[in-house]
């Protein structure tokens, strides 16, 4: 046990270094102040210990210079920490446009992972080395949190929302995956592993694991089975708007506003069709709440994405990342 006692976690992504740098900077400042103040207290306590019962020290009222000094210096240090943290946070938050997508659905008490080519995993996530990966995540029930300590990343999955995070692994290995937000009885069992693999190994694993259809194909099948295709016709002659070339674009709504057709918009339109009506169409679509699972939704989204040939691999995420290859180094 003591043999491999760790003081510092594994670091396996390009974003981890920035977090560690912030951590070590704050640690340095903290140790300096903690030791400095403790030594001062200790020194005063010994040097000025009471020597006789009736000594009365001279009162000191205070010093404006000192007050300003120990207000302004800590303030400036704190602001430097704020800037350092925020810069890294923004960098670690915005995924590059060329990131490959992996879809995560949490439920009590497991993680379901879908790769675009249809490979599905539970509590295990395989990712390639040196390629940006963007996770699009949601949950079937309560709030969970997808936490990979070796990447210094975590993000809550929230019912009714898609949250994202991205990383670029830079070290082959097997790393912990935890649920970090308390989610009920088996919370501590909602754990798994992230496998970072060499590109070639990853491709081999991927091709060896394909069973049946890709996410896009599964989505197309659902699209037909649920009857979406009868109204949302490709040539725009149906009762609903066509979905070709819609994803990632601005959509004009009936109330005059526009909205970005991203994952959240499609999800909302499937489950609550009346909430955002496309300009020129009536509220005819029934809700599919209860007829489609979170994973099925992600498949349908994947299919609708594929209808937009112009949409980049990163989908709507492209709009989040102004400069493509800014990622974390």
């Amino acid at each position: 046990m003591a043999k491999d006692l760790q003081l510092f976690p594994d670091s396996a992504s390009i974003g981890a270094a920035g977090v560690d740098a912030n951590y070590l900077y704050i640690l340095g400042v903290s140790v300096f102040f903690a030791v400095g103040i403790s030594l001062a207290i200790l020194y005063f306590a010994l040097r000025y210990r009471r020597k006789s019962q009736d000594e009365i020290p001279k009162p000191i009222h205070g010093s404006l210079v000192l007050e300003l000094t120990w207000t302004i210096i800590p303030f400036l240090l704190a602001m430097s920490m704020f800037v350092g943290g925020t810069v890294v946070f923004f960098r670690n938050y915005h995924a590059p446009a060329n990131a490959m997508e992996v879809f995560i659905v949490g439920k009590q008490w497991m993680w379901k992972i879908q790769h675009p080519n249809g490979v599905r995993e539970i509590n295990e996530m395989h990712v390639p080395l040196n390629r940006p990966v963007k996770l699009i995540m949601t949950t079937e029930d309560v709030i969970h949190s997808y936490f990979i300590p070796a990447f210094r990343l975590k993000r809550d999955v929230v019912p009714g929302q898609y949250t994202t995070m991205w990383f670029q692994a830079n070290k082959v290995g097997k790393y912990h995956l935890f649920c970090a937000e308390y989610c009920g009885t088996q919370h501590s069992g909602m754990i798994g592993w992230v496998h970072v693999m060499e590109e070639a190994d990853y491709e081999a694993w991927l091709s060896g694991s394909i069973r049946g259809e890709t996410m896009q194909q599964a989505g197309e099948r659902l699209f037909n089975r649920l009857g979406c295709a009868t109204c949302h016709k490709a040539d725009n002659t149906g009762r609903g708007p066509t979905l070709v070339d819609v994803f990632g674009k601005a959509v004009k709504l009936q109330n005059g506003t526009t909205t970005l057709a991203d994952e959240a918009y499609i999800r909302e339109s499937v489950l609550k069709p009346a909430s955002k009506i496309v300009s020129g169409y009536a509220v005819e679509m029934p809700t599919f709440q209860g007829q489609i699972s979170e994973e099925g939704l992600l498949q349908v989204i994947s299919y609708i994405k594929s209808l937009s040939k112009s949409a980049p691999a990163g989908g709507a995420a492209a709009s989040e990342a102004p400069a493509g290859k800014k990622g974390g180094n």
Binding site: V19, I26, L27, S38, A78, G85, F147, K154, A180
Partner: peptide, 21 residues
Amino acid sequence: LIGGLTGLFCANVAVDVHIHD
């Protein structure tokens, strides 16, 4: 002192993403 100074780690967004929960 320790409690207050470790609060700085939590205030730093990048570090807090890791240590949160």
